[in-house]
Write a protein that binds this DNA or RNA. Structure first.
Lengths: 110, 110
DNA sequence: GCGATAGTGAACCATTTGGTTCACTATTGC
DNA sequence: GCAATAGTGAACCAAATGGTTCACTATCGC
C-alpha cells in the first residue's frame, strides 16, 4: 500500500500528457528513450528528464543495454493509484449512489 | 470521455495530499472551506486556493450559502481518471499478464 | 448595532517544473 | 578508425505552484 507521499508522486507523474503517453507505450512493450523522443515534440534531453522522473517515482524501471536505455513499466504504482481512486469512490461515494443522478451511468464498477 | 488536457488537470488535482483529503471528505458529505481549514495545517486563504483549483478543474462544485461556501464532489472527473488507469492496464498490460510475476496478485480486476 | 466568523483579493516569496542549448561520453556500424 | 547515434550533465530560463500576510467584504448571532 502506497502512503500519501508516494501517491503524490504517482499522480504527479500521471499529470503530464507525455508521461502518460510514455507509460501507455511501455504497457505494450519495452522501449528506449530515443524511441520516445522520436515521437514527442521535445528534445531528447527533456525526454530523459521525464524518464528520470518516472523511474525516480517508481513507475518504470530502466536498464542500460549498449548505448540504449531500455525502459519497462513497474505496474505496482499504477495499480496503487487505480486502487486509491476506486477505493475512495467505493467506500464513500458508493453508499449514496442510490440518491444520485445520471452521473451513475458512468459507473462501470460492475 | 475526458481529453488529455482535462486528464492533466484531474491528475494534477489529485497530486496533493490536502486536495485528496478534501475530496475524501466530500465523498462522504458536503463541507465548507472553513471545515477544511480547521483540519489542515495551512491558512484559510491557502485552502481557498485549493478549493478554487478543485472547482476550476471540475472535481467539485461549490455554492454560497450565507457566509459559507459549501462544496460537493463532482464524480465525473474522478471516474474518468479511474477509467483511464483501468483501461490503460486492461487493454495493454492485461494481455501479457500470463507471463508476468507476482505483481499480479495486486490485480483485482475481477 | 456590533463583534465574531467565513471568505476573497492582492501582493509577495521560494521552490519546482518543464523546457532549452551546448558540451561531453560511450557505443555502434561501416 | 571514424562518423553517426544514444544518452547525460550543466547552465540557464519562464512560468506555475503552494504558501504567507494584510486588508477588505459580507454574513451571523446576540
Amino acid at each position: 500500500m502506497l502512503n500519501d507521499l508516494q501517491l503524490d508522486k504517482v499522480f504527479h507523474a500521471l499529470a503530464h500528457p507525455w508521461r502518460r503517453w510514455i507509460l501507455g507505450l511501455l504497457l505494450d512493450r519495452e522501449a528506449s528513450v530515443q524511441e520516445f523522443a522520436a515521437a514527442l515534440p521535445i528534445s531528447l534531453t527533456a525526454v530523459g528528464k521525464h524518464v528520470n522522473l518516472l523511474e525516480g517515482y517508481g513507475l518504470i524501471r530502466t536498464r542500460k543495454e549498449g548505448r540504449n536505455r531500455l525502459c519497462s513499466v513497474e505496474p505496482g504504482a499504477l495499480l496503487a493509484a487505480e486502487r486509491w481512486l476506486r477505493n475512495a469512490m467505493w467506500s464513500r461515494y458508493r453508499p449514496r449512489l442510490g440518491s444520485l443522478p445520471e452521473d451513475l451511468t458512468l459507473l462501470r464498477l460492475r
